[in-house]
Amino acid sequence: MTDYRTVPTICPYCGTGCGMLLEVSGGELIGILPQKGHPVSDGTLCVKGWTSHEFVGSSRRLTSPTIRRGEAAGEASIDEAIGLVARELWRVVDEHGPDSVAFICSAKCTNEENYLVGKLARAVVGTNNIDHCARL
């Protein structure tokens, strides 16, 4: 470990937006520190922030979509998975109306991505059923 640097970023877990430093060495994340003087969190984090480096290199992390075909679930390409979701969502909307589906967006996405989810739900599909994982 002859290199060590910290990278300021925002905690990915919820919508509060706490400031944290990623501790980076050898191209890997080795830890997290709360960022001192940050206007939102001023040097504090909750347990999620403190441990948020752990999932990045986790072997249990999902790295590709999985589609269940009959009994077996197998890896699929992103295009294939999105195609399937789109077809099935439209099938449900066509059969039962737009309010039969809901959109859950995420604090892990950017503001812009969440905005687009809102547009997709309201303008494309026609439902106001939108929520997100960071309802605090």
């Binding site: 002859t2 060590y4 640097r5 910290t6 300021p8 430093l21 001192k36 003087g37 940050h38």
Partner: peptide
């Protein structure tokens, strides 16, 4: 960085 002092190992 952006007005904030952050730890760094310099060479």
């Amino acid at each position: 960085e952006e007005g904030s002092h952050i730890p760094h190992l310099f060479s």
